[in-house]
């Protein structure tokens, strides 16, 4: 993926930044976006990426969390403090996920060609 494509993604994430917490909603890691889990919340509740993107979640809480697809597409193990979990989204679609320990924590990854 070209740097320009990522820059475009960063721009689409700006509204989420403004609406969300004071910390960055997501940052790049190893060429893919990273979602920070903090205070029982996913830093970017909704993220739009092109197919083939690897998304990484990192847990900054003292509680373990999970990233679990509501449709059983992906299911992380318990992500403990400072641990990460990554998943590569290959097919376009809307992927809702939640934490099986704290089900009030919900998020969504939208995979769209050309995004």
């Amino acid at each position: 993926m070209s740097p320009w494509r990522w820059m475009a993604l960063a721009v689409t994430a700006v509204p989420a930044l403004l609406l969300g917490a004071s910390s960055p909603a997501w940052s790049q890691r190893d060429g893919g976006p990273q979602i920070e889990i903090k205070a029982h919340g996913y830093g970017t509740p909704q993220l739009t990426v092109p197919p083939g993107t690897t998304v990484t979640w990192i847990n900054h809480d003292d509680d373990p969390h999970t990233v679990t697809s509501t449709e059983n597409v992906f299911r992380s193990p318990g992500i403990d403090t400072d641990e990460t979990y990554s998943y590569t989204f290959t097919k376009p679609g809307i992927y809702d996920y939640f934490c099986t320990l704290h089900p009030l924590m919900t998020g969504k990854v939208v995979v769209r060609s050309g995004s």
Binding site: T70, D96, Y97, F98, T100, P103, L104, T106
Partner: peptide, 16 residues
Amino acid sequence: HFVGLVNVLTYKAGGL
């Protein structure tokens, strides 16, 4: 009479 109930096996996204 003792009753042990299980209230953690039906967690759904956004639920309780």
